[in-house]
C-alpha cells in the first residue's frame, strides 16, 4: 500500500498535466518546494511565476491571468491562502475567474510548525463563496484525478492538501466524481464521515470498532462543495448515527456541512469531531492526531462512546 502526501501527488500530477494543457500556469509565494509546485516550475519555467511572499497580489494576479484565458494554479499554505479571503472573495469568486487555488499544509497534521502554519478554517471560508468548488482528496489516486478535474473545470476551485503522507484508501480502478461521496466500507451501526487526512484513520477505526461490537460504515467526502447531501441523508436513514471526522475546525467545515443536512430534515444524531474550537500546537504529526483524537484509536474511542450514549 502506497503512502504519499497529497501535496506531492498534486505537484507530480500538475507537472504531467502541463504537457497536455498549455494554458496551465502556476504561481507560488515562496513556498514552491513545500507546496510541490516546484515540479511544474522545473519542467515549465516559462509558465511558472514566483511572486515572493505576497499572497494577496498572487491571488489577484491569478484572477487577471484567468480572465485572460490562462488556467492559473495559485499555491501557498492553506492558512496563508485563507488569510487573503477578501481578495479571493472579490477578485476571484465575484469576478468568476477560473482560478485554481491550492492550499497545502492543511490542519494539525503538519505537526512541528505549530498553529500559525495550520490551515484550520479554510474549508469554512471557501465553501461560503458562491461558485467555489471545494475539494479535499484523501489519497494519491484521488488527488491526481482531482487535479485533472480542477484543470478542466470552468470556474474557481479550492484544493486542500496535506503536508503529511496519506495511506491509500482507493484502489487503482478508482474514478473521481466531483460532488459524489465514496462509501469505502459498509456498516449499519453508525457512519464515519471523513475527508482528506482523516479518511485512512477512519478506515482503521472501523477495524477497531468491529472488535468492540460496533459495525461502522466509512464514507469519504472528498468534495466539500458541491456537497453530497443525498449520500449523507441515505447514511442518516440507514445508520441513524453520523460522526464527522476532519483535520479542520469543527466549525465551518465538513461537520458543519453535515449538520446543515441533518438540520434540514435528515433523521440522525450527529457527532462532529475534529479540531474542537482550539488552537493547534507544535509536535509530531502523530502527536497532533493523537492529541486531537483524530487518529484511528481516538476516532474509535469517540465513536464507541457516541454509540453508547445514543443507545443509553
Amino acid at each position: 500500500m502506497a503512502s504519499v502526501a497529497s501535496r506531492q501527488s498534486f505537484g507530480l500530477a500538475l507537472a504531467e498535466l502541463g504537457e497536455s494543457h498549455p494554458n496551465i500556469v502556476v504561481c507560488d509565494a515562496d513556498l514552491s518546494k513545500s507546496t510541490m509546485s516546484c515540479h511544474f516550475a522545473e519542467k515549465f519555467p516559462e509558465r511558472f511565476f514566483e511572486f515572493g511572499i505576497s499572497e494577496a497580489n498572487m491571488l489577484g494576479a491569478g484572477a487577471g491571468m484567468a480572465l485572460t484565458g490562462k488556467v492559473p494554479f495559485v499555491c501557498s499554505f492553506a492558512c496563508f491562502i485563507s488569510g487573503r479571503f477578501d481578495t479571493i472573495r472579490i477578485s476571484i469568486a465575484y469576478s468568476r475567474a477560473n482560478v485554481k487555488i491550492v492550499g497545502t499544509h492543511a490542519g494539525v497534521g503538519i505537526g512541528e510548525d505549530g498553529h500559525s502554519q495550520m490551515g484550520l478554517e479554510d474549508l469554512g471560508l471557501m465553501r461560503s463563496l458562491p461558485g467555489m468548488v471545494v475539494i479535499q482528496p484523501a489519497d494519491d489516486i484521488e488527488t491526481r484525478q482531482a487535479v485533472k478535474f480542477a484543470a478542466e473545470h470552468q470556474g474557481p476551485v479550492y484544493l486542500r492538501l496535506t503536508r503529511q503522507k496519506l495511506d491509500d484508501v482507493n484502489d487503482s480502478s478508482y474514478e473521481f466524481q466531483v460532488g459524489k461521496g465514496v462509501t469505502l466500507a459498509d456498516g449499519s451501526g453508525l457512519t464515519l464521515i471523513a475527508t482528506g487526512g482523516t479518511v485512512a484513520h477512519a478506515l482503521k477505526a472501523k477495524g477497531l470498532l468491529a472488535a468492540r461490537g460496533v459495525d461502522a460504515r466509512v464514507v469519504n467526502i472528498h468534495t466539500i462543495k458541491p456537497f453530497d447531501a443525498e449520500l449523507i441523508a441515505k447514511c442518516a436513514r440507514e445508520t441513524g448515527l453520523l460522526m464527522t471526522v476532519e483535520d479542520h475546525s469543527i466549525i465551518g467545515g465538513l461537520g458543519s456541512a453535515v449538520a446543515e443536512v441533518i438540520a434540514e430534515g435528515a433523521p440522525a444524531k450527529l457527532k462532529r469531531w475534529g479540531v474542537l474550537d482550539v488552537f493547534g500546537e507544535s509536535g509530531t504529526p502523530e502527536d497532533m492526531y493523537r492529541a486531537h483524537k483524530i487518529d484511528a484509536e481516538g476516532i474509535a474511542e469517540t465513536a464507541e462512546q457516541f454509540v453508547a450514549n445514543a443507545q443509553g
Binding site: G60, G64, L67
Partner: peptide, 8 residues
C-alpha cells in the same frame, strides 16, 4: 493585481 496578471 488583476491588471498585473492580465499584463503578464
Amino acid at each position: 493585481s488583476i491588471a498585473l496578471g492580465m499584463a503578464m
